[in-house]
């Protein structure tokens, strides 16, 4: 099976509460919290599309779109 390739991180900023679960469990340190405590993808090129952020987000605020 071909490796999934990232298209985009869809982040629902209004829903994100800045708990940091996605940041903590990202194996490639792609995500960080910004100055407003909202998640943002700062190193999207490192993303391996494992979706651990998406599966563990309690706020359904992050979604990985692959090509």
């Amino acid at each position: 099976m071909a490796k999934p390739k990232l298209k985009e991180h869809h982040i629902h900023r209004d829903w994100c509460k800045g708990c940091g679960i996605c940041v903590h469990y990202c194996p490639k340190s792609v995500l960080e919290l910004d100055e407003n405590d909202k998640v943002c993808a700062v190193r999207p090129e490192d993303c391996i599309c494992c979706r651990l952020c998406e599966y563990r987000c309690p706020d359904l605020a992050i979604e990985i779109e692959t090509e």
Partner: peptide, 26 residues
């Protein structure tokens, strides 16, 4: 999965980091 939720009630009332949101997600 977004088709299964009532988006008008989001963000939900659970605290930041609450595990119940993860149960909903799963």
């Amino acid at each position: 999965i977004k088709d299964y939720i009532r988006e008008r009630f989001f963000p939900h009332l659970w605290c930041p980091g609450c595990g119940h949101g993860i149960v909903l997600n799963a």
